[in-house]
Design a protein around this nucleic acid. Structure first.
Lengths: 227, 227
DNA sequence: CATCGTATTATTGTCAACAATCCTCGTATG
DNA sequence: CATACGAGGATTGTTGACAATAATACGATG
């Protein structure tokens, strides 16, 4: 008995409980539901997730190795609080990672990536039109995620993911950094067009400035000296 | 009661048990003591580490999030096996990460980093003189770790660590890739000198080629098509 | 003989109880 | 009054036992 054409079906991935809890926790932290510096009481959280402390602890260990949490022995696990130095480091890393991804994209997948980025642009525009700052921020993240995905490098994608999570962490602290939402959209539109047509050096520079601008805005608006 | 000058003492870090076990496991995997694809039996490992299954599972979750292990629900946790595509991806990422670190180093810490790299060079030379391939490999890793440390970016350092671990994983599979150990040393010496004196573009290019060479050697020697 | 169904066994997933550590608050003492 | 000491409570660290799932081997059936 031979099988017919079933399309490209992929193996079902049954995520472990630890992974599920880790995802929940991560989004809770990003959303700001748990504020930086706060301790994650095991008993409390365990009942909240309706699981025992065992799986919860496993999940927390994952986030520790991602750098979202830190643990002090016999005291507990806490949400990492980002200093301004961290913000700088995060954006430095984003420049490195996304810049590296960009190089790979420009080396043969420009058109495809340009097309994929359309989804994010559309989402941003719609959100901006109705003044939905959160939606624009979502679109922003989507844009950069798609950009990195264009490099089709599993490791770059993972690095970018954690960096984007950290980005949202500091953004969450001071809600929307752009004066006008449409400015944010336009910046990404320009970047997208450059990816299709401009010289590599130019695109690269544009991305660098785009990320540099954000860190400047963050410095001006919120955390001046140090956290 | 005021305290006198105690030097720059830093907070004592009592690592959690999970972290300790994770370190042990990581080195065991890198060393090749556990071969890729192998399942990590919990009961067996737990007795081996003289702990219960709880802490062990926590440690394994860390390595899962690092990508060294992967877990299949209700089946177990396994050591990830690197395909040739992974090798390419690892070296692409190393180019990105170490290249990014290099940019930061060249931007104001050239002399200092050049000096720091001396340690690694010395270690490599000594090892090469007595034909100790493993020692040279250690020095190689140290070199790249110091290089990235020069950028003093916690996140770049962590990314680089993970990548170096993965590098050693595939290297471990086919023991020493250099025809002559001294060639390997000389390549690093050239790179180090360039970091002190050469134009940024040149240094960057040199590093890129250095990493590219390695992947070529790996393709020639061991894994041709896939896996 | 190949295939399907089933019992067995081993391994993972989960939990609740116990031990160890730390924080807090009250008390004693100089 | 400030400090040191100690009891109590709460939280984390660890363990062993139990439940659930999947791999294996064996026998039944077409």
């Amino acid at each position: 008995m031979t099988l017919g054409d079933l399309g490209d079906l992929q193996p079902v991935a049954q995520p472990s409980t630890a992974e599920l809890i880790a995802d929940q926790l991560r989004s809770a932290i990003v959303r700001g539901a748990i504020e930086p510096g706060a301790q994650l009481g095991e008993a409390d959280l365990a009942t909240r997730f309706a699981v025992s402390r065992g799986p919860l602890r496993e999940a927390m260990q994952r986030l520790v190795s991602e750098g979202l949490l830190y643990s002090i022995r016999n005291r507990g696990i806490f949400v990492t609080e980002l200093t301004f130095d961290d913000v700088v480091d995060i954006y430095n890393n984003r420049r490195v990672i996304e810049g590296g991804a960009l190089d790979l994209v420009l080396d043969g997948r420009r058109e495809q990536t340009w097309q994929d980025l359309g989804t994010a642009i559309d989402a941003m525009r719609v959100a901006a039109d109705r003044g939905d700052a959160g939606g624009v921020s979502d679109g922003d993240q989507m844009f950069h995620e798609i950009l990195v995905a264009g490099a089709s490098s599993p490791r770059l994608i993972r690095s970018a993911r954690t960096l984007l999570v950290e980005t949202r962490m500091c953004l969450g602290a001071l809600h929307t950094t752009y004066p006008d939402l449409h400015v944010q959209v336009d910046e990404h539109v320009a970047l997208r067009e450059a990816i299709r047509t401009a010289e590599p050096d130019v695109v690269r520079k544009l991305l660098g400035e785009h990320l540099h601008d954000t860190v400047d805005r963050l410095r001006d608006q919120g955390l001046g000296g140090q956290e």
